[in-house]
């Protein structure tokens, strides 16, 4: 693995992305529009005295989902395109290391994820008036980790797909179970025991745990174990992505 080759790859991926104005617009505005929609849904819901407005309790969790979804899809489709276009075969016949390719992609999309996450958080708090107990930087940290997780899972999933159809089907296969079991729909400890165990094995659960903690507490002191677990999942998915990349194919 070389910093120079990883950097060259990240730069190349970012240059490609910069050319694609429509994708940039979709990455930037779709999460903001969806959050606005969520905010508007609750506008006429009466708030009981002493209770939190529903947008304040639901919003942060949903904010953690968009970057995961979007980065997963973008990463799995672009890397698959690289495999199908023959450039991956070309790269694999060149001196570049497999880790350089995967980490180059992760760095480029990770950067995009940071920008997207920042925009989502800034917009929710200062435009939609999200009332959030914990520190804003901690929320931002979790959302950015979610986005990088999406990139890492997308890299790993794309190596299992042979066609773009299959790559898109990886979304319901990999992401939707996490959406259902992460504690957004119902609290994780209220699920049947087996589902709670499964939920313990899914990375998004830890992101949602951390976000729930932050919506109720003013300090970020107890999210660090979740952060470490999320990082471990990210590293694991990246290693899986490297392991599934093959110099020789059939």
């Amino acid at each position: 693995m070389s910093i120079q080759l990883t950097g060259a790859t990240a730069l190349r991926v970012l240059t490609q992305l910069r050319r694609d104005r429509r994708t940039i617009a979709l990455i930037t505005f779709v999460p903001l529009i969806l959050l606005t929609l969520l905010w508007a849904m609750f506008l006429d819901v009466p708030v009981m005295p002493g209770h939190e407005a529903p947008f304040n309790s639901v919003g942060p969790g949903i904010m953690g989902l968009f970057p995961l979804f979007i980065m997963f899809l973008i990463t799995s489709v672009t890397t698959l395109r690289e495999r199908q276009g023959g450039t991956m075969e070309r790269l694999m016949a060149s001196p570049i290391g497999r880790a350089d390719v995967v980490f180059g992609y992760a760095c480029a999309f990770g950067l995009v994820a940071v920008l997207q996450g920042t925009l989502v958080v800034v917009y929710s708090i200062w435009v939609l008036g999200l009332n959030f107990a914990g520190p804003v930087w901690a929320l931002l940290l979790i959302i950015v980790l979610d986005a990088i997780l999406g990139t890492a899972l997308g890299l790993a999933a794309s190596s299992l797909a042979r066609t773009e159809f299959q790559a898109l089907q990886m979304f319901p296969a990999v992401i939707v179970p996490q959406l259902l079991l992460s504690g957004i729909a119902i609290e994780r400890d209220q699920m049947p025991q087996v589902l709670e165990w499964i939920s313990d094995a899914l990375p998004l659960s830890y992101a949602i745990d951390a976000i729930h903690y932050l919506t109720e507490n003013q300090s970020a002191s107890e999210i660090w174990s979740q952060v470490v677990i999320l990082l471990a999942f990210i590293v694991g998915a990246l290693i899986l992505g490297v392991a599934t990349l093959r110099r020789r194919t059939d």
């Binding site: 190349r12 240059t15 490609q16 050319r19 694609d20 276009g85 023959g86 450039t87 075969e89 070309r90 016949a93």
Partner: peptide
């Protein structure tokens, strides 16, 4: 030390 051109042109089309 070995250069290789695949049968189908394989370059980044958007660059």
């Amino acid at each position: 030390r070995v250069g290789y051109v695949t049968q189908a042109p394989s370059v980044y089309m958007d660059l």
